[in-house]
């Protein structure tokens, strides 16, 4: 991979889904329409857009869990074919394995990768300490709070050092305070790591607080409507991001564009 080459690249990507429900009325619908995007290594990119615009589908394509119907998605220059085990993938649900303790959950990716037990344990211990979960190693997921589970989901992905981390509304289900704390922890874990992050969110404040760049999808069929560079330097204070002098105008600008799409969606729903 040459240094100038983007780490992720989508070219003229289309996706058609067919509803599996009624056999006699197999309706297909267009989820993505001519998506073109290049992400440079080391960037933190937020994907925003109205519900159902295909952001998650796009993320799943980079993870290799969904194939484009047409067009091509490249990862480090090579087309994504099959599951992309080089990337990290974190969803809205923490998806911890309920039958594994915290430590076993954090270790699992290394286990899949054939790392011996002693090495796994040491590495997991390091990450567990990093996010303040020491003392909970032998707890099962149902014995942990939402924030703790989310931290566990985060470090069990970071532990195998993926170059790209795909995050699909990871902090969606959390309460407002835990959310900001985790945003702060995520930034601290990411800054200086050189990793690229693609982060789907519905929360514009979150997008502004975390990302270098915001990519806005249009309503379905989703296509990229606009890209913005966040005019706030790093390191950032997520707890007081709204007090930054550049925040207000930038937020208004992004929100105006998003609002247009949301209103259109609402009108289309009413017509139906």
């Amino acid at each position: 991979m040459s240094p100038s080459q983007p780490i992720i690249e989508a070219r003229e990507v289309f996706k058609v889904f067919t509803a599996q429900g009624n056999r006699h009325d197999r309706r297909a619908f267009l989820a993505l329409h001519d998506v073109n995007l290049a992400v440079d290594a080391g960037r933190f990119v937020a994907l925003v857009g109205p519900s159902g615009c295909g952001k998650s589908t796009f993320l799943n394509m980079i993870a290799g869990l969904v194939r484009p119907t047409e067009g091509i998605v490249r990862y480090k220059g090579a087309p994504v074919e099959g599951v992309n085990t080089d990337a990290g993938y974190i969803t809205q649900d923490d998806n911890l394995f309920p039958w594994r303790t915290l430590q076993e959950n954090v270790e699992v990716a290394l286990e899949f990768r054939g790392v011996p037990a002693t090495g796994r344990r040491a590495e997991a211990g390091k990450y567990i300490a990093m996010v303040g979960l020491g003392g909970f190693e032998h707890h099962f997921p149902h014995e942990l709070s939402g924030g703790m589970r989310k931290r566990a989901a985060l470090i069990r992905t970071l532990i195998y050092e993926p170059d790209v981390v795909l995050m699909d509304e990871p902090f969606g289900p959390l309460d407002a305070q835990t959310r900001v704390i985790l945003q702060d922890e995520l930034l601290k874990l990411w800054e200086g790591s050189g990793k690229s992050i693609l982060f789907v969110t519905h929360d514009l404040v979150e997008a502004i607080a975390l990302a270098d760049e915001i990519v806005m999808f249009s309503r379905a069929p989703g296509t990229i409507k606009r890209r913005y560079t966040v005019p706030i330097s790093r390191p950032r204070d997520v707890f007081r991001i709204h007090a930054h002098p550049a925040f207000g105008d930038f937020y208004d600008q992004v929100w105006r564009d998003l609002k247009e799409e949301i209103i259109e969606v609402a009108l289309e729903v009413r017509e139906r």
Binding site: Y89, T91, F97, V108
Partner: peptide, 15 residues
Amino acid sequence: PLLQVARVMGASEWD
């Protein structure tokens, strides 16, 4: 979702 997450984390079919 558990199967998908496991696959992305590098699980083989046997895993």
